[in-house]
Design a protein around this nucleic acid. Structure first.
Lengths: 157, 157
DNA sequence: TTGACATACATAGCAAGCTATGGATTAATC
DNA sequence: GATTAATCCATAGCTTGCTATGTATGTCAA
């Protein structure tokens, strides 16, 4: 009995329900929507969320450091930081020792949002994983991490 | 020993690595990139992929029907179909019985792309799931499906 | 010290997703 | 039959992601 990987199916058909890429994309959009509904009252949008989490861990990172931690390309980060600055979540302080870069610092408002934002993310997680037991969720996160490692390793090989 | 769900953690910290939403978003972007690199030679982009799969299953769907199958909002589909028409992948034939709608039909070129596109998706799936055994991948897809059902059910409740 | 390379950030242009809204056509109701 | 409601699609405006490219600053070597 052959393993029958997804790519070795006999015909050229590929139902969406069996397509990993489609399912992951769909899930990502649903999670983003659920998060958006719970954080918009705080004037935050999903694309700013990971940046805020990173700055809660360590404030004053540079744009480059944020890119590495959040795993977002630099131009995307540049625009996101512009919107976050516009929305009063961060401000940037030029580094006097290296005028190419600037430290990104949380505003007071952003710091006050930490609790409700993390709570909102927890709500979404709980909602999404309703009916699943703890090992199942752990297995999910573990498998996702392995896929991410697989996909990131191709750039480095 | 308490279950300790993601939302009931003691502090207000939420490492990205433990955040379901972040990890799923990250994985989705990596899968999209891997697919893009493999299909761009055929003049197709990731956002057109699910639509093509749906039309390979059944040609001549309306925009509305495509939205339901691909689970994309109607305005997004409208723009994507415009680009697909521009790129010579589909054309639209007005329905004489209901002038509000039109059937979306695959071009010859699009039909010829079915084999290589499905092969490309298979390659990405195999690459992403390298080192995982078949039950592990099946469990992943099954769990993802359950999360999708959980998140979709909130709109209907 | 200066010319070449490297690094940090910004900008342009595009894709792909969303919500909100509008216009045209069909269906339903009075 | 006329009005109202529902349906289908298009458009506007936004966010979030990407690649490609430009500009300014810093670094290093000749």
């Amino acid at each position: 009995m052959k393993p029958e990987s997804l790519s070795s199916r006999p015909t050229s058909r590929l139902p969406r329900e069996e397509s990993l890429g489609y399912q992951v994309n769909h899930l990502a959009r649903l999670l983003e929507r659920a998060l958006r509904l719970r954080i918009e009252e705080h004037g935050v949008v999903p694309g700013q969320f990971a940046q805020l989490l990173a700055l809660y861990e360590q404030d004053g990172l540079t744009q480059r450091e944020l890119c590495e931690r959040v795993q977002i390309e630099q131009p995307t980060m540049a625009y996101t930081l512009q919107r976050m600055e516009r929305d009063g979540l961060v401000h940037r302080v030029p580094d006097p020792h290296d005028r190419r870069q600037a430290k990104v610092l949380l505003s007071d408002r952003a710091r006050e949002l930490q609790e409700p934002l993390v709570a909102a993310a927890g709500e979404v997680n709980d909602l999404a994983t309703r009916g699943l037991d703890v090992p199942e969720v752990a297995a999910l996160l573990g498998t996702i991490t392995r896929l991410i490692e697989n996909l990131e390793s191709i750039g480095r090989s």
